[in-house]
């Protein structure tokens, strides 16, 4: 059983929903990432999404773009990100880590080299934003061969027929993009999301995560009633920005932000 699968099974037994915070690896500095990952877990995160910085993050809003640019100023590469996961695993063998990013750095590293190194470092899943299932067969096959979960996105524009195919191609969990827009956008409608998640459940037994535009504990709580996991990215990175200069303060901000989400979700 994969680490992601056992994580969701444990949550189900305890009737809890997964909280998945997102960090861009190397933001604000490469040294900050592993301690921040541990801080997220201490504050109540169940899974972690680690963003691989890319020069041209087409699906991301300004907050994650800025985070990518900061990480790239430090020259953070895909190999460095994998190294950070290995560092995290020295003290945490339980919390699943999903890499989220764009295809080109993986193309340059080579699919098999990437999947092999990621698996050995303790990465559990890979979500490649600009790689829909139609183009994903070679990478997805390798991920499965190395027991990593390929995670694909579903969106408000996804047809039912495609939704079935996407669920088929996914393992670990599927990720529903809650709105038409980029990460961190406004205009999320919880009722629409609830209706769509109901429809997606007809296609899959996999847990369903929701992300994009979840800004506060109240929204996270409402979504945790309809989804199996809630992903929070831009709002967290925004909260971190004023504290970048002070590592201790930064970890404090992260702990405070995530424990607020955790409390609201558990009370829901």
């Amino acid at each position: 059983m994969s680490r992601i699968q056992s994580c969701f099974e444990a949550l189900r037994r305890n009737r809890r929903k997964a909280l998945i915070p997102f960090l861009t690896a190397g933001d604000p500095t490469p040294q900050s990432t592993v301690p921040l990952m541990h801080a997220l877990v201490e504050a109540g995160a169940d899974l972690l999404e680690l963003g691989v910085p890319f020069s041209d993050p087409m699906a991301d809003g300004p907050v994650i773009q800025r985070a990518s640019e900061r990480a790239l100023k430090h020259g953070v590469s895909l190999r460095d990100v994998i190294g950070m996961v290995a560092g995290f695993r020295k003290n945490d063998i339980r919390t699943p880590v999903v890499l989220m990013g764009y295809l080109n750095p993986i193309e340059v590293m080579g699919y098999e080299a990437f999947v092999d190194e990621a698996a050995r470092a303790g990465v559990d899943g890979v979500l490649t934003v600009d790689l829909p299932p139609e183009e994903a067969a070679p990478l997805a096959a390798l991920l499965r061969k190395y027991d990593l979960d390929p995670v694909f996105l579903l969106s408000p524009t996804t047809s039912e027929e495609r939704a079935a195919r996407i669920c088929q191609a996914s393992s670990g969990f599927v990720y529903y993009v809650s709105l038409k827009g980029v990460t961190g956008a406004g205009g999320l409608k919880v009722d629409d999301v609830a209706a769509r998640i109901g429809a997606i459940r007809k296609h899959t037994q996999l847990p369903i995560g929701v992300g994009f535009g979840i800004k506060d504990p109240a929204t996270a709580a409402r979504l945790s009633k309809v989804a199996d996991a809630v992903v929070v990215a831009s709002a967290l990175l925004s909260a971190m920005e004023p504290a970048h200069a002070d590592p201790e303060k930064l970890r404090g901000v992260v702990r405070g932000f995530v424990s607020g989400l955790r409390a609201a979700m558990d009370a829901a």
Binding site: M58, L103, E134, L153, P156, T157, V177, K180, G181
Partner: peptide, 12 residues
Amino acid sequence: GGRFVAETLMQP
């Protein structure tokens, strides 16, 4: 070539 975009753009 191909179609390497985020899911939201696949249907459009």
